[in-house]
Design a protein around this nucleic acid. Sequence first.
DNA 1: AATACCACTTACAATGCGTGTAAGGTTCTT
DNA 2: AAGAACCTTACACGCATTGTAAGTGGTATT
Lengths: 234, 234
Amino acid sequence: MKSIAVVEDEKMVAKELSSMLEKEGYQVHLIEDFSGVTETILDLRPDLLLLDINLPEKSGFQICREIKNKSSIPVVVVTSRDQLPDELHALELGADEFLTKPYRKERLLARVANVLRRYEGRSNMLEGPGFLLDRGTYTLYVDGTSVLLPRNHGKILESLMLEFKNVVPKESICEAVWGTSEFIDENALQVNLTRLKKTLGSLPVKVQIVTERGVGYKLLPISDTSEKEPEDRV
Amino acid sequence: MKSIAVVEDEKMVAKELSSMLEKEGYQVHLIEDFSGVTETILDLRPDLLLLDINLPEKSGFQICREIKNKSSIPVVVVTSRDQLPDELHALELGADEFLTKPYRKERLLARVANVLRRYEGRSNMLEGPGFLLDRGTYTLYVDGTSVLLPRNHGKILESLMLEFKNVVPKESICEAVWGTSEFIDENALQVNLTRLKKTLGSLPVKVQIVTERGVGYKLLPISDTSEKEPEDRV
DNA sequence: AATACCACTTACAATGCGTGTAAGGTTCTT
DNA sequence: AAGAACCTTACACGCATTGTAAGTGGTATT
């Protein structure tokens, strides 16, 4: 069952949306506490986000941007003002659909289904800056072409992407690659990491593996090697 | 440069659309002869189709359906009637976007850009009934999962998909797999074909390799083994 | 019905890629 | 300056993919 997070401040509308979507067979999460919306949504990991732009506390645009930055959850933006700039802005921020209130029930449902269908299959794709990683085959999509990563390279990249911008301890990576088996050889990881680095370096990928001496590794956007990013979250 | 095919019967509108899109940097193909529109479009292989629903000779819906059946060209549907059923119907037929006239220039351009961006990278994907084939790595996407085909299996499937439903002579397949080099061994193809057949058989793919005795092979949708399909096109 | 041709199956050997191991070099830190 | 952590390189093993070969099965034509 697909789950949908709904962010909407007008309670009446929220209720209506909720029941409409539930009747259609979706699992709905109404979000009414707007402090820390973004985190709430990221924790929920819904299959889709239905987002009102006009919120009391925080701009819907802001939320959209944050969600799109930190995840690849599809976003459908809803607004009461039929203002073109809003729509363009939302699409710029990565929104996948845009609807104006009042909307017809069928139209909304059709759009939602459309977006979900569009993202279908992309479910086991990890999204990075400028590239996609297929978690099943470790096919890397970058710049319109595709490259096949060897399984272990892929697993390493995968575990780094899952903690994007955060340090992943070497033990975690080993566990991800060889299963929870005890440290076979730390060097094995080392070698594979180097190989992966070389591969990534030869591709137009806007990302970089940075080693954190004594701890592990992290994946960073290129031209952002500075230490300003929050990195003390381990 | 992205190319866009425009199907629109009102000449004024067509001209306007055309210049608008060209100013934006697209290569526009205006289609004004509506006999054999579908073939014209398929021959053009545009990156996107901008399609008016209300046409004199043929229903836009029909065109949309045909294009979506025979290709994976993205379709943006435009209509003058703001009728919900139209929109739903279009989306059902696989249209990617829906716009009502009169539309704001920016909105249309934004939608077009959005759709094009969405299809980016999918450019080297071949689409079959219920699955996708990445022509770069021969990753097969089916039913939400992905499988990696060996290179030669992939090449064979690729050449069959490019002539979907039509017989591909054995020589053509050999050429596609081993280059134009002379028939190495017809048996090699035989063996690989069998292996590919087995692989496909073990996947939830709605497709089937049928051998055409003395000629070659063809790819057919499953539960359509009958001989009614046009197969004499070689 | 028999034959000849074509399609299929199976097994096996070879090639190549991915991988881990080992040894030695480099960089960082104290 | 020394030790620790990290990196590089080379090599050998193993598995998947592939082509070869030989033999079986099916079909069409006479």
